Simulated assay, not measured.
Amino acid sequence: MTLLTKQLINLIRLLHSDTGQNQIAAGLAFGIFLGFAPFISLQTFLVLFITFVFRVQLGAVFISAFFFKFIAYLLDPVADPIGRALLEHEALRPLWTWMYNVPLLPMTRFNNSIVMGSFIISIILCPILFFVFKQLVIKYQVTLVHRLEKTKAWKFFSATRFYIWYKKYNDLYGA
């Protein structure tokens, strides 16, 4: 079974349990860093390291990163002037020079105005998104799960092969 499929199953399991709100919300919020950062960069590896160390839900990170990649593309015209203003600010020039001469820091691509602006937007939005996603997960778990399971669409979905496979997997390997 692939890592992504396993993480999606874990995400579904956590969404339908009464625990894990912080793990899911942090995963969804950390996805903004992966979505806004270049694919292969130091930021990506740092976020993945933090995700593994602090038990953040990996499936939520990947799903969120997928959607934030599209949003990042749309926000490039906003991120560029923010990054350009920071990179061209005279008082910060010694900091940028020092960072460029430190061995691994140029791998962050901080000298690109769009990458810098996207990183600043990510830093600002991540804590806000954590609390928003936490409230959404709590509301989902309290109200929508019970309503969803009573609908005809859920009954149809629960009869599909994917759901039957999921239930069998959950019975065999689930916690």
Results as ranks from 00 to 15, higher is better:
Ser158Val: 01
Pro94Asn: 04
Ile12Met: 06
Asn101His: 15
Ala159Asn: 12
Gly174Leu: 00
Ile32Cys: 10
Ser122Met: 11
Leu3Ala: 06
Leu46Lys: 02
Val142Glu: 14
Thr51Glu: 13
Leu34Gly: 03
Ser113Trp: 05
Ser17Ala: 13
Asn170Gly: 00
Phe130Met: 09
Gly117Lys: 07
Leu11Tyr: 12
Val53Ser: 04
Phe52Asn: 01
Ala60Cys: 02
Trp96Ser: 02
Met99Gly: 06
Arg109Glu: 10
Pro81Ala: 02
Val142Tyr: 15
Ile63Phe: 15
Cys126Asp: 03
Gly20Asp: 06
Val132Phe: 09
Val56Ile: 15
Asp80Asn: 09
Thr151Gly: 12
Ile128Met: 11
Ile82Met: 05
His89Phe: 12
Trp154Pro: 01
Lys168Trp: 12
Met99Arg: 01
Leu74Ala: 10
Leu8Lys: 04
Trp98Glu: 13
Arg13Glu: 04
Thr19Leu: 14
Ile71Val: 05
Phe66Pro: 06
Thr51Asp: 07
Ile71Ser: 14
Cys126Ile: 01
Leu8His: 03
Ala153Trp: 06
Asn22Asp: 13
Ala26Thr: 02
Tyr169Ala: 15
Glu90Asn: 02
Phe110Thr: 09
Ile128Ser: 09
Val78Arg: 14
Tyr100Phe: 03
Arg161Val: 13
Arg93Tyr: 08
Val115Glu: 11
Lys139Asp: 01
Leu125His: 05
Glu90Val: 05
Thr108Ala: 15
Ile124Glu: 12
Leu129Gln: 11
Leu136Gly: 14
Gln141His: 09
Gln135Ala: 11
Val145Arg: 12
Lys69Met: 11
Lys167Gln: 14
Met116Ser: 10
Leu148Glu: 14
Leu105Cys: 00
Ile128Lys: 12
Leu136Phe: 15
Lys150Arg: 15
Leu148Tyr: 15
Thr97Gly: 01
Leu8Glu: 07
Asn22Ser: 00
Leu42His: 06
Leu104Gln: 02
Leu104Ala: 11
Leu125Phe: 11
Met1Asn: 03
Phe68Tyr: 11
Cys126Phe: 13
Leu42Gln: 09
Ile114Ser: 14
His16Lys: 03
Gln23Met: 08
Val61Lys: 07
Thr44Asn: 06
Trp154Arg: 13
Val61Glu: 04
Leu125Ser: 09
Ala85Phe: 07
Cys126Leu: 12
Asn170Val: 04
Leu105Trp: 04
Met99Asn: 04
Phe67Lys: 03
Ser17Pro: 12
Ile138Lys: 15
Ala60Arg: 05
Leu14Thr: 10
Gly117His: 04
Phe130Gly: 02
Val137Asn: 06
Val137Trp: 15
Ile120His: 10
Thr97Met: 02
Thr151Pro: 00
Leu58Asn: 05
Pro38Leu: 07
Asn111Ser: 10
Met1Tyr: 10
Ser17Asp: 07
Gln57Pro: 00
Glu149His: 10
Thr108Ser: 09
Ala79Gln: 07
Tyr163Pro: 09
Leu46Tyr: 01
Leu14Cys: 08
Ile9Gln: 14
Val145Asn: 08
Arg55Cys: 06
Val115Asp: 09
Val137Glu: 08
Phe67Gln: 08
Leu104Ile: 14
Thr44Ile: 04
Lys167Val: 10
His146Leu: 01
Ile63Val: 07
Val142Asp: 08
Leu46Glu: 00
Ser158Thr: 12
Ala153Asp: 07
Ala79Phe: 07
Phe119Leu: 06
Thr160Trp: 05
Val61Tyr: 05
Ile138Met: 15
Tyr166Val: 06
His89Cys: 06
Phe119His: 01
Ala85His: 02
Phe33Cys: 03
Trp96Ile: 05
